[in-house]
Design a protein around this nucleic acid. Structure first.
Lengths: 335, 335
DNA sequence: ATACAAAAGCGAAACGTTTTGCTGTGCAAC
DNA sequence: GTTGCACAGCAAAACGTTTCGCTTTTGTAT
């Protein structure tokens, strides 16, 4: 079991160095090449990565760091990233970090001891982590996903949330809606701010006065409550943009409890599609993030940095969202 | 940057061996212990795992192997497993394998070269992979999730699908339903067989004649079509058990297209809950897998095997499903 | 033929740990 | 006062590669 480069050397009467050279794609004599390859077959040689890593100080491994408690949205993205990385001959380790602790030194130590070549960081909403600092100090290249780091310049790739929200809002407006609502989670998070900005962009383009806008945000758990308040206003919005997937659930539950029907009584567009949105009655129109492209771009960018190419640092990749029109928006008669 | 055990040795005037001893929890003189710990602090020493791995031939790393194209159901489970493994000081690498190829030698080579201590294998439905053989031959401990391997005895942990289906079906029966349907994906897969068996268990307990049962299965894409056929039968079932999450979506879409209402026109229970099922109108009653427990048990079992404990091999851990009663089942008047 | 550069090969060192086998010290038992 | 034993410490070897510096071979131009 487990033959090594030494066995190959003995078997072929060549030196370690020559075998290693061949294995790393350098030129050697064709006859030796043949000899080595035969020997590898015969002895079933498989390179030992831990030895390679130790000697070369490169591990061809990157780590996806995500906040503890895996929201399964991210789990999905991990699979995508793993697949892309594998194409570059990198392997992926996933690890969660404790976002509630102010100090992530232990996570950094993990990365250092594992000798990872780079990190894909999925920041926590709270943005209070010091991980970015630590990574920078340790000279570990990293790319952020989803959230812009306010604290430090860093590469990041994200959906173009602003444009996505803008497009959805315009769709409301083009269908005659003039009183609009938006419900978000924590409105101070980067993502929410962007989406809200897109919402406002479209509204001001159509000269919708501020008093026709109804914007709520806060805890996800209270979103249903916000929704209830909003819809009970005497002149409530006719269309609401839901700024997050989880919020939409609360909204739909509330609506059905209030016996209001989509889109007759209220039009609705949601961020972040789920397969299941298409199964609702009516199916929900959504702004959907292109997870595949996010994964691809993040991978590409990270590997560029690992290879020492720091052109355009810090780079921001905005990935276009897709707008899937289904049936949750009412075409107003008075349009 | 990056001090080593050698630096600590020099700094403390002790030998490498002593430092290593301390680091691995063996006894050394208290004064030396203090000396070493101070030195570690001062020099910011972090153990190099690649070196440790090379020398000790243990990597404290396990690999989650999942079929290519990450269905995000599995992504979620990966996060759970990672979290448990971390508690045992293991790290997790994820890697996908090509289930369509009959030969997964390259995947095995990856595992061997990475020197992983164990594998959590998520088999493909097709069960045609030779990975289990290869793992066994290479003496890499592994635990299967979800599917029993027909080809080889192996540890596996799975939901108790049969009992779950039995419970759901009984719920139909107890509410007066006597004509029942079940719609599955590929009925020859282990999971589907189990669920169907549970369905039949309950039916035969209530002496439901076979002609009152309506069972369809096949491609997920054609499930909507099966559903359409079933509901158009002159004496169609009054209650249908959906044997998989994705199938339910098709069903609900079809139902709304046919203008049939749940549960008035048809009662429905689905396997595999999604947060969103509770948001449907009406909310869907479901049989839900305890992913957390699956992850926990799989981790525990794998680590036991890694530690050389092969008691009760091959071991099967059946994890109870939970039954969440919502409002998609009609209480029949004639009950 | 001769000189010279380029290519290919070699032995040995290096990467940072753990493990092995040995030595020296102190202490209890006889 | 010797024997024996546990314990701590040490130097050196080992893990399986890559890399360094040097030598030998090959090919080409004179």
């Amino acid at each position: 079991m487990g033959s090594t480069i030494k066995d190959i050397a003995k078997d072929t009467n060549l030196s370690l160095a020559t075998i290693s050279k061949h294995l790393n794609g350098k030129n050697i004599l064709p006859e030796n090449k043949k000899l080595i390859e035969e020997s590898i077959q015969r002895l079933g040689y498989i390179p030992n990565k831990t030895a390679q890593n130790l000697r070369s100080k490169k591990t061809k491994t990157i780590c996806i760091l995500l906040p503890i408690i895996g929201d399964y949205f991210w789990g999905f993205l991990c699979s995508i990233i793993e697949e892309y990385l594998r194409k570059y001959n990198y392997s992926t380790i996933i690890s969660s970090y404790d976002a509630s602790s102010g100090d992530n030194t232990s996570e950094l130590q993990f990365l250092l001891s594992k000798q990872v070549d780079g990190v894909i960081l999925i920041p926590d909403n709270s943005n209070s982590i010091n991980l970015p600092f630590l990574l920078q100090k340790a000279h570990i290249p990293f790319v952020c996903l989803d959230q812009e780091l306010s604290v430090i310049p860093a590469d990041f790739v994200t959906s173009d949330n602003r444009a996505g929200a803008y497009g959805a809002t315009r769709y409301f407006l083009e269908n005659g809606h003039r009183k609009l609502g938006a419900i978000g989670g924590n409105l101070s998070s980067y993502t929410m701010k962007e989406r809200l900005a897109g919402f406002r962009d479209a509204c001001s383009e159509y000269h919708i006065p501020e008093e026709n806008l109804c914007i709520y945000g806060g805890d996800v758990s209270s979103s249903a409550e916000y929704f209830r308040i909003m819809t009970s206003l005497p002149e409530h919005p006719t269309a609401v943009l839901m700024l997050g997937y989880d919020l939409t659930l609360g909204a739909i539950m509330t609506l059905s409890a209030l016996n209001m029907q989509i889109p007759k009584d209220l039009s609705l567009i949601s961020f972040d599609d789920d397969e299941i949105f298409s199964a609702f009655n009516p199916p929900i129109t959504t702004v959907v993030q292109n997870m595949n492209e996010i994964g691809r771009q993040a991978t590409k960018l990270l590997i560029k940095r690992i290879n020492g190419n720091y052109d355009l640092f810090p780079e921001t990749k905005m990935i276009e969202t897709n707008f899937i029109i289904r049936k949750s928006v009412h075409v107003l008669a008075d349009y």
